[in-house]
């Protein structure tokens, strides 16, 4: 009886595993089947030879890095200051961070297109540089919940208030406290937020498409409509990027709470 139950449980788990592995296996097999006479890496070769691939991928990577930078600069000081010195602002910040859940990307970018159109006061959509800025801002908004959660739990884990008070009593100035004590200790959290952001942003489609940016997400979509085997290769590549980034997040999670370093 108990044996059967146990067997049943493993069967259920195997079904789940199959559901999640089949798309990966199928896509991988597809990406290798460009030639009729056997498996080959031709699909990948064509993809890498495509100049649009190089340009769209590097564009998206650059935008992702900008997003991470802007997001971190916005979030880290805010979370730190709200936690320590402006606790009454906390509900407001929490609400702002929830907004992306209620306002999905498509609506946000719709708002951007309206508000920053070429006929508006700030005609950002008129130029490609302006559209880049809009795209980064949109991605920062997308990443805000992830970054905020990561940094907030990081600060909570190291007990930032006590660390700050201890450092202050020892005579450290605020800038020193943030750069020498807080930041090194929440580095793991910031990094995992950053990798998560990268994974989400790198193949994002809706915002890039509606702002007509030459990004990776719309590129995959275009290739997918036009060709058969190359999109599978692209999917495997993007799987690989996403899963590497997310895997790093999971590995980083094991390292927290971070090891304290001695100064000097």
């Amino acid at each position: 009886m108990i044996k059967t139950m146990h067997l049943l449980r493993w069967i259920c788990l195997s079904l789940g595993v199959a559901f999640f592995l089949m798309p990966l296996i199928s896509t991988a097999k597809f990406s290798l089947s460009l030639r009729r006479d056997g498996y080959s890496l031709d699909a990948y070769r064509y993809v890498f030879a495509d100049p649009d691939f190089i340009s769209s991928f590097s564009y998206s990577a650059l935008i992702a890095l900008c997003t991470i930078f802007v997001g971190t600069v916005l979030v880290v000081p805010t979370v730190y200051l709200v936690r320590l010195r402006l606790p009454w602002l906390r509900p407001v910040v929490e609400f702002i961070v929830l907004l992306p859940l209620i306002v999905p990307p498509i609506i946000l970018v719709f708002g951007y297109v309206r508000m920053f159109s070429s006929s508006s006061l700030i005609p950002l959509t008129g130029t490609s540089r302006g559209s880049d800025i809009l795209l980064i801002c949109g991605y920062v908004t997308l990443a805000l919940p992830y970054l905020y959660r990561a940094v907030d739990t990081g600060l909570q884990a190291i007990n930032a208030r006590v660390l700050t008070e201890a450092a202050t009593i020892l005579g450290a100035r605020p800038i020193t406290i943030i750069t020498r004590i807080i930041l090194p200790n929440i580095m793991v959290s910031v990094l995992s937020g950053a990798f998560l952001t990268f994974a989400v942003v790198i193949s994002e489609f809706v915002m890039a498409s509606l702002l007509t940016r030459p990004a990776f997400g719309p590129y995959i979509q275009r290739v997918g409509v036009a060709k058969a085997y190359e999109p599978a290769a692209l999917v495997i590549l993007s799987f690989f990027i996403t899963w590497t980034a997310m895997g790093l997040v999971q590995i980083l999670a094991r390292f927290s709470p971070p090891v304290r370093r001695e100064s000097k």
Partner: peptide
């Protein structure tokens, strides 16, 4: 749990094409 942490963030165009292949 690790897998779910990753998969819950895997969506969009690549997911669609993965299912086309499946």
């Amino acid at each position: 749990m690790t897998f779910c942490g990753v998969a819950s963030n895997f969506s969009g165009v690549p997911l669609a094409f993965a299912f086309v292949a499946t």
